[in-house]
Design a protein around this nucleic acid. Sequence first.
DNA 1: CGGCGTTTTGAGAGGCATCAACACCTGTGG
DNA 2: CCACAGGTGTTGATGCCTCTCAAAACGCCG
Lengths: 257, 257
Amino acid sequence: MGFNGTRYAAPDSGQPPLAICPPCVNRICGVMSEKAPAPRPRELQRGARLDAGTSFKVWTVVDGLAALCTALPDGRRQIVSLSTPGDLLCPMVGGEGADLWVEALTASRLCELDLTQNARALADDAALSAELFRIVQRQVTCTSIHLITLGRLDGMERVCLFLTDMVWRLGVRSEGGWRVHLPLSREDIADYLGLNAETVSRIFSRVKKSKLATFISPTDFFVRDIEALQSRAPLAAPHGPEVLGRDQLEAMVSCRT
Amino acid sequence: MGFNGTRYAAPDSGQPPLAICPPCVNRICGVMSEKAPAPRPRELQRGARLDAGTSFKVWTVVDGLAALCTALPDGRRQIVSLSTPGDLLCPMVGGEGADLWVEALTASRLCELDLTQNARALADDAALSAELFRIVQRQVTCTSIHLITLGRLDGMERVCLFLTDMVWRLGVRSEGGWRVHLPLSREDIADYLGLNAETVSRIFSRVKKSKLATFISPTDFFVRDIEALQSRAPLAAPHGPEVLGRDQLEAMVSCRT
DNA sequence: CGGCGTTTTGAGAGGCATCAACACCTGTGG
DNA sequence: CCACAGGTGTTGATGCCTCTCAAAACGCCG
């Protein structure tokens, strides 16, 4: 789908996902498992960092929340992308010593796939190539949406888009709406949205006052009318049905209920 | 290289670029020409738009300036990426009817490669897979740098980074510095930098007053000390030697002198 | 209970957007 | 040759949004 929900031909229609890890809706594990070392699970504490180095690795987030982070020399931080359970993390940008790293924002479990070892053998595999292409295509889509968010949306719009996205990513269906546990701090949200922690807190208060969401605790909120929340942002959420696809979204939501 | 110039192993070291179009430093044409329809040149007037539709096409910019654009329902526009001669344009995001399009910001010449027709045959080609991977990797890198720019840099920093990048992309060595012709309007620059046309104009005046650049005309400027200009931005320019690689940059600059 | 980290709220300042007026250039037609 | 219109770029005044600094409230845990 396009950013605003215009439909285009899905490149993978009809093929059921092959999942290994329970919440893993991605097919890469299934495609890989035939010819590569089995995926290795990794446990990460909050704040732990991963470095891809010069190797080419792909992680699937099984549990928790991981982020691609950068920092400027003066300490300003920008979170380039967030990965919630079921997402793939593929830091193609960085490299040895680059100031781009993968960080666990919460205690997390990741599945690591190292594609370096038999890269040449894998290059001949059409199924894998297609799958890798699908992964980076999705990454480019998400990054582009995030880029537009940072370039053209104001604070309120950014926060509403973020909350909508988090409902699709982490929301659990509950009586009359969605319940979501936010696994990141205000500062992490701010660094993701190109804002300031205080500003995020202030906008959360405004969202509460507008009755677009109810905040049970600083880290838990409840959304009664997701359409209303969604419509406050002029862009489709990267993990919403318009972009991710309704089938895949359903599969992921049903894993959480 | 990382964003700030930390070096990592270049995936293509040692291999000379195979170019077909004169200013085309990319290897894709060479890799493709063996088994695919020859690249088709296209002439575009200013403002003309291309639609990738459901097919998978790649364009090489031979001359002019092309952009990946989006627009929000209320008309706000964001330019996701710019492509100058030698760049590849590969709009993997969009699709039929999506509100993402390729637009010529100046009269331009593009080389079109359609990868749809024999996609299956091409998937078996290891060299092509590797080349495609290199392309999207570069695209992810550029998009990420742009994302950080929009998220964490203020107006002055954004403009200095933009001017630095334009020197690397379009600059011609001249006595004691670089001369650059800007092929885009203030509004286009603003839409690329997430700013406002008036603000861009004001910041250009500040840059002039700081003697970081001299403006010969609204569309031509001259940079005496590129190091000074570069150091005003806390990030490496996507087309600078730190990210693009010194060898490839030299090749592109020498095409223009 | 007291310490610590996080979140919230307030006051003030600064940056950018908006609206408006004006200068400049180009091409057209009288 | 000049007048004029339309597009583009510059500059000014004003207001709003967000950042910064600061203090207080809240939750968690030893």
